[in-house]
């Protein structure tokens, strides 16, 4: 019982260390190099490029789902792609985050009327951050990442406050 209050799930040690881990998670967000459509140019390629350089924040791309923490769904997901998106999400190790980038991934965008298109990637996988725009500028994506970091850090903090 006593041990539980020191290292148990709601103990201060656990929560503090969890907060530290969340600090690390929020500051090392490797995204998967997986561009579906137009948004990938802005959110994945320009983001790695010289002007926007997300590497400054510790946000870098990896080619493999197994190594990555964040999946940026950058583009229209249709029914063929939905299977792949789902599968890639399942391949990522926990904790994993999803950023839905652009109008298409959020809600189908200009193509929502076409029956082959999935209206919003949140119908397949859980989404953490939605970035509006068609396409969003790289700055928006940067802001999205910072929001995601805030969200990650807030989780442990909220439990600590409780």
């Amino acid at each position: 019982m006593a041990l539980d209050s020191v290292v148990g799930e709601n103990s201060i040690v656990f929560l503090k260390s969890e907060q530290f881990f969340d600090w690390a998670r929020g500051r090392s967000l490797w995204y998967m190099a997986f561009g579906i459509a137009c948004c990938s140019l802005e959110g994945l390629i320009a983001a790695a490029g010289p002007r926007f350089d997300f590497d400054r924040h510790g946000i870098f791309y990896r080619g493999v789902p197994r190594h990555s923490d964040v999946m940026i769904v950058a583009g229209t997901v249709n029914r063929k792609m939905a299977v792949i998106v789902k599968r890639l999400y399942e391949m990522m190790p926990e904790p994993r985050y999803v950023i839905s980038m652009g109008a298409c991934a959020n809600a189908g965008g200009p193509f929502r009327e076409y029956p082959n298109v999935v209206t919003g990637v949140d119908k397949i996988i859980p989404v953490d951050i939605y970035i509006p725009g068609c396409p969003p500028r790289p700055e928006s994506v940067q802001y999205g990442f910072l929001q995601l970091r805030k969200k990650i850090n807030d989780e442990a903090k909220a439990r600590l406050d409780k």
Binding site: I36, T76, N78, K80, I84, C104, F111, E113, N116, V117
Partner: peptide, 14 residues
């Protein structure tokens, strides 16, 4: 191919 098929030609008719 077809992973990004989103009906540009069909939607253009509308």
């Amino acid at each position: 191919v077809g992973n990004l098929h989103r009906g540009i030609e069909k939607l253009a008719e509308n």
